[in-house]
Each structure stands twice: as C-alpha cells, then as structure tokens.
Amino acid sequence: MYANSAYNAYTENYIGIESPYKLIEMLYEGVLRFNAQAKRAIKDNDIEKRVYWTNRSIAVLAELKGSLDFKQGNVAKYLDGLYDYQIKLLTEAGIENSLEKLEECTNVFKGLLEAWRETTDVA
C-alpha cells in the first residue's frame, strides 16, 4: 500500500531520473526530510502532522524494502532487517511522541545516505 504511493510520488516528481542509484539516494533523503517534519510536529504537539510525516517515512521504508535484491547477498538481508527496525522505531515514535526514537532513525539514515553516496559516486 505505502510502497507504491512512495514510489509513485518520487517518480512523478523526478521523471527524468536516469539511475536507480539516484532514486535510492532520493528515498534516503525523503526519510530525512519527513523525519524532520515529524520532529517539528512532535515539538509542536501536532498529532495529525506527526502521524502524517511518520507515515510518509514508513512508506518510503516500505519502498526501500521492496527494492531489495536478495540475490545480491548478505547486504540485502542486513538492510531488510535494518529497514524493519526503522519502521518499528518510526511507528513507536508516532505512538509514543518520542523524539529519541525519531532521532535514532534519522541518525541511521544520515549514515546510510553518506555511505550510499560514497559507494555509488552519486553526489
């Protein structure tokens, strides 16, 4: 459900994307952007926006999970588990109004984005 909407949103906005590597980078950036909005909503005690933005991040994570190629080895298995854990954190952050859990997810995606850029030469 969320996976298709996340993918469609990005492809509609970036029809000219040449590389699937760039799409992954954009998805990572999307999680960071949506988490920042969720953080603001938590600080403002805006329940509706908190739920909206955490759900947007979860949708992107679902798309990332769906794009994993398990034929490529252990990295895909590791990322699958990592993405599952991030979904759990975001869900709990939304329910519990937890900045700490949201920040934990954000920090993971900052690291993933940096590593992705380094290994794919996409800047």
Rank of each mutant, 00 (worst) to 15 (best):
M1Y: 03
A9F: 13
Y10L: 15
T11D: 06
N13S: 15
Y14W: 10
E18A: 10
P20V: 09
Y21W: 10
Y21I: 09
L23W: 02
L23M: 13
L27W: 11
Y28T: 03
Y28H: 10
E29D: 10
E29I: 04
G30A: 08
L32V: 08
L32F: 08
A38V: 06
K39R: 15
R40L: 14
I42L: 07
K43E: 15
N45W: 11
N45L: 14
E48Y: 09
E48F: 10
K49A: 09
K49R: 12
R50M: 05
T54D: 00
R56T: 05
S57F: 01
S57W: 00
I58E: 00
A59E: 07
V60F: 08
L61K: 00
L64N: 04
K65H: 12
F70P: 04
N74A: 15
V75N: 08
L79V: 07
D80P: 03
D80C: 07
G81K: 08
G81R: 07
I87F: 04
L89I: 02
L89D: 01
E92G: 04
E92M: 09
E92Y: 06
I95D: 07
E96M: 09
L99P: 02
E103H: 03
C105M: 04
T106S: 10
T106D: 10
N107R: 13
V108W: 07
K110F: 11
L112N: 04
W116S: 05
T120D: 04
T120H: 05
V122L: 04
V122Q: 03
A123N: 15
